[in-house]
Nucleic acid binder design. Structure first.
Lengths: 340, 340
DNA sequence: TTTGCTTTCCAAATCGCTTTGAATGCGGCA
DNA sequence: TGCCGCATTCAAAGCGATTTGGAAAGCAAA
């Protein structure tokens, strides 16, 4: 069932049918009804390849999967991708995922652009001097950055959460509770967001005339395992840290295990605030004890990015798109006064 | 830079250039060299939409993301998707992810088929009477099932791991160690794989004249939280279970927390074998104590499914594709003799 | 020289849609 | 009546590849 068939069936020209289906104003309302009814009845759907060829737009947006980067395609990416695709599905736009090695990103971009496979890209996990921005700008491929690349001066669209503010507030709160030996289990050190978090941590400490103990700072992947190992090492130091900041709920689980294994009680002997990207399957409220968190839905960010991408396609200049989302601080049972 | 331009540049016809690039035999080797050199130099890449229209193949395969199903788009799906896309990238085939509500799967399939958006689909998380198989078969859309739909008689391609055998062996091993009160934390009950695992568990028990205690069987999502709650409930029963089977590493983490919280020691007071889908960021070996697992890489399964999909496109009949992968049992420190 | 094969290359049709530029029908108005 | 303007509709020209059905060139055999 193609357009021609449908047109023949209706005794109309392809032009009219096409226009009726695509909501052009110059077609009689009665005709439009007739056309869309027939289309539905006969199960007609435009061949996307043909449409794409004719319009010159691919009707797809690309999301790159970091294969060997410090950030894996893990739960965070999955959740983020859900957010994007949920929104895009409503617009009949495909999400094509492209695995990409850290080494040959630019060649892959070049291919993506030349083959007109996608209309825009979503970039994740930026570093401060992210070179992808220049590459894509030069290639003329629209993109939206999830996160920030502080040192890149080229105008570009981004959406980020206020990592610095979140960790500053979390740290301040721990300081208010009397904690001074605070350990920080951050993300991969090269990532902008991790740098921002470290900055927030440091600035809150310094505001009280303290400075972070480098011995109590760790980074790396957001995994249970990494959280566990770092926390275990930190807990062996004397004096022992009385509070932890964890970069993700995964790390927090590992930290929690280490705390238990050391015979300590979370929320009493040791406090913890973790960053919660809001996974539907990992609820800070339901943990025992419930976890205090800095919270920002990564799925919502994905959905919003999809939205902004659509606006960019409608001509909104990328340089005008900058969103910095505030992060909530949600206090629960895992934080308590510092033991004296 | 389009084919026409490239052809003009070379003083050849589009036909010849196209053939040279696509490796047809009837073009002179010297010409081919000249063509591909020029293509490289000028950065020519075929417009995928045009190619797709001309060939009638979309050059993409679809992966559906269950949005509201019992299985979320979580770490498992992410890892699986990595496997697929890794393999497909080598063939310049796009992966398009389509979010899909459990309710309107068939309409979405119908649209996918009619719009010729993808050449084939990957289906995950089947139930025993999975109705998607009939729907897709009827629509003539090739697909490959990750898992099995036992009661569906329509011939179709599938790849699955031997869940039943894995859990039978794991259970047998626990029985060998003297455990008899074994708790099982399974996956979502409607899923075939969970049913198979339950069957393996039961059959191992029955082979020793025992039968599983329904009070010690739980299901649900593969999350830390779910594992924690179920394990905690089970550990309150008397006599207490001395061993756990966990459906995933995520659940296992929760079980582990519950065990610690109950003041018990894993590997001594309580044993556990978890199913490990092999996440790069969650290593059973590095846990403390290290975790005994039934192991099968879900990423490898994804890669293999991609491979099989390619073979299907080359004409291999779907009905002939059935792969049942054995599952390793890897014993580590989390399993020990039953306390007397 | 002709014929018959290969080898190598080409012109033009095709894929199914969008879009341009023009045609048609019809009521209103002078 | 004749012309204009508006609302509809249409025929045909793209979009950029693949592919069909030859054709030209080169060469060996007749």
């Amino acid at each position: 069932m193609k357009l021609k068939d449908l047109a023949a069936e209706l005794g109309l020209s392809q032009t009219t049918v096409s226009r009726a289906l695509n909501g052009f104003p110059e077609v009689n309302e009665a005709t439009r009804q007739r056309v869309s009814e027939a289309a539905r009845r006969l199960g007609y759907r435009a061949n996307v390849s043909a449409r794409r060829l004719a319009t010159g737009r691919s009707g797809a947006i690309g999301v790159t999967l970091p294969l060997q980067r410090s950030l894996h395609f893990g739960p965070h990416t999955a959740e983020f991708l859900s957010g994007i695709s949920e929104r895009m599905a409503q617009h009949d736009i495909d999400i094509v995922v492209t695995p990409i090695d850290a080494d040959d990103e630019v060649p892959v971009f070049r291919r993506l652009v030349a083959s007109k496979r996608v209309d825009a890209l979503v970039l994740s996990a930026p570093t401060p001097n992210d070179e992808r921005i220049a590459a894509l700008t030069e290639l003329g491929m629209p993109f939206l950055l999830h996160g920030r690349a502080d040192n890149v001066k080229i105008p570009h669209a981004w959406l980020d959460i206020d990592n610095e503010g979140a960790f500053r507030r979390a740290t301040s709160h721990l300081l208010d509770l009397g904690h001074t030996r605070i350990a920080m289990i951050n993300g991969p050190e090269d990532q902008t967001f991790a740098i921002h978090r470290a900055r927030g941590f440091r600035s809150a400490m310094e505001a009280r005339g303290l400075s972070p103990d480098p011995q109590l700072i760790g980074g790396g992947r957001f995994t249970d395992e990494n959280g566990f190992r770092l926390a275990q090492a930190f807990l062996e130091r004397r004096p022992r840290p009385t509070a932890f900041l964890a970069g993700s709920m995964m790390t927090a689980l590992g930290v929690f295990r280490a705390i238990r294994l050391a015979g300590l009680e979370l929320g009493k002997d040791v406090s913890m605030i973790a960053h919660d990207d809001v996974f539907p399957y990992l609820n800070a409220d339901n943990m025992v004890p419930s976890m205090s968190t800095t919270r920002s839905s990564i799925r919502a960010a994905g959905a919003r990015i999809a939205e902004l991408l659509l606006q960019m396609q409608d001509g909104k200049p990328p340089g005008s798109i900058h969103e910095l989302w505030p992060v909530e601080l949600v206090l629960r049972e895992s934080t308590g006064p510092a033991p004296r």
